[in-house]
Nucleic acid binder design. Sequence first.
DNA 1: TATCCGTGGGG
DNA 2: TCCCCAAGGAT
Length: 367
Amino acid sequence: MGAVARKQLPLRPAGPDTTAALLDWYDSEGRELPWRSPPGRKADPYRVWLSEIMLQQTTVKAVIPYYREFLRAWPNVRALAAASLDEVLTKWAGLGYYSRARNLHKCAIAIVEEHGGRFPRSEAALRKLPGIGPYTAAAIAAIAFNEEATPVDGNIERVIARLFALRLPLPAAKSEIKRLASTLVPSDRPGDFAQAMMDLGATVCTPKRPSCLMCPIQPDCHGYAKGMAESLPLKLAKPDRPSRFGYAFLALSEDGHILLRRRQEAGLLGGMMEVPSTEWRDDWLSVEDAMRSAPFKTDWWPVTGTVTHTFTHFRLQLNVYRAIVPADATLTFWSEPNRCRWVNRRDLHNEALPSLMRKVIAHALPQ
DNA sequence: TATCCGTGGGG
DNA sequence: TCCCCAAGGAT
């Protein structure tokens, strides 16, 4: 009788009843995740932090195996701080957004050297650490320390925009969304509330075809009442993705080693290993010009086909040239020999190779 | 505020 | 095939 009677009443703004309904749903249907401590047990700030960094712009499914491997290799922040950056980048390889790995390592060192190996519990102190922005600081404070913070990620933006039928488009709506979300945070369970909102956004209040009939807070949802839930939040159009083109040089020695090169620390794929290549331009270099960027002079043979890869803000096409050189050959390096290293092709799994470079290698050395 | 920064899966 | 998107941060 409650549902029918309630539907006919004018919809009230979301409030404490909304929060209570959400937490009830979370207690019965919340997800079990590797970094989530069982009910009643204290969360480990290190695990919360590690998972939150990995989950930035990355799906749960992609994160889980990386999270498990990091925790196995480095069970606490002191262990991670004692690792080398290259070890961290190697284990991060394939997860993307490599500045996260560089900042993860920096942050671990800062925790050990400046905070005695313990994470600070306040949002403001967390916010000062490398790689921890507004969302992550609030998430760690709420989830690991039960501080009354309001993390707002993409899920929560969507839930709030729909719940309040917010028509202001992102990203301009961010501050208003944070304000509205903060009005719903319960002082006794801020961490559970944050995770409940994210679970709801991930499993019920999804970007496309949300399951409004299954939603525990649908009776309070203005977006649903107005029939516009799925269209929210509004977003400004995104810029188009230009294309870039380049040539990669896969050198294979007769004893089975591949020539790799370390990329510069900053920028795209910063600090990761690569198959040496020309610069990536907005048009094709001539083959003659491309050869001037080869790592050394030899006979380079074209590999049939092209490697394509899509980054966040551009598409890349690489033509690959291959050379097989005698193990004892005297090679004339043309650029940055100090950044280059021969690696046994059987040991490539121990290298910080991003997905693009694994594609290039697989393309040039099939099997 | 706008741009840069990866990758893989789903519709 | 292509676009969208995922527990954002740094500059």
